[in-house]
């Protein structure tokens, strides 16, 4: 049975008519052509599908689309503003924190969620927050550096 849903997607109102049980990830990718969120496991174990729901990271592969009704959803496509990379995106480039890059959108959104609630995380807090995200190229070292660097960039930008 199809139902019409409304939610805010990357700052704009969005409406889809679909089966409410479908994973948010599939609706983003197949109905809305936003393929930046990746499928990796379908059980919330790898977090390549991470999006921000009301500012907090969530695995969209195990999130039914019905649960985001009237909420704010942010995907990797909505992170840069006016063509300017978000500090976390910039930090991943600066630290060369990518290999195949398939995990990177999920990593960036998880890190963004962390910085949303803790602007000055310790290395231990970063590792704790990121531990749900898998990188099979195993580029964890540069990713941790990127998140640390991102925290500095956020601070710099907000102090300007």
């Amino acid at each position: 049975m199809e139902i019409e849903f409304k939610f805010h997607l990357n700052g704009k109102e969005c409406s889809v008519k679909t089966d409410p049980r479908r994973p948010l990830l599939e609706v983003l990718r197949e109905d809305l052509a936003l393929t930046g969120s990746k499928y990796g496991c379908g059980e919330g174990q790898c977090r390549a599908c991470t999006v921000l729901i009301d500012g907090s990271p969530a695995p969209s592969c195990v999130t039914a689309v019905s649960t985001v009704q009237n909420r704010q959803v942010q995907t990797i496509e909505g992170l840069a503003e006016d063509g300017r990379l978000h500090p976390v995106q910039q930090a991943f480039i600066d630290e060369d924190a990518m290999q195949c890059g398939y995990c990177v959108p999920g990593m960036i959104l998880t890190a963004t969620g962390l910085l949303n609630r803790n602007s000055n995380p310790s290395r231990g807090e970063i590792i704790e927050a990121m531990n749900g995200n898998l990188c099979r190229c195993c580029g964890y070292g540069n990713i941790v550096k990127a998140v640390e660097h991102a925290a500095r960039l956020v601070k710099e930008r907000s102090s300007r």
Binding site: T35, G101, I108
Partner: peptide, 18 residues
């Protein structure tokens, strides 16, 4: 640094799945 990095961090790069 990695060539094509910006397409990766913005989600713009299309993998075979995409």
């Amino acid at each position: 640094p990695q060539v094509g990095g910006e397409a990766i961090v913005t989600g713009r790069h299309q993998y075979p799945s995409d």
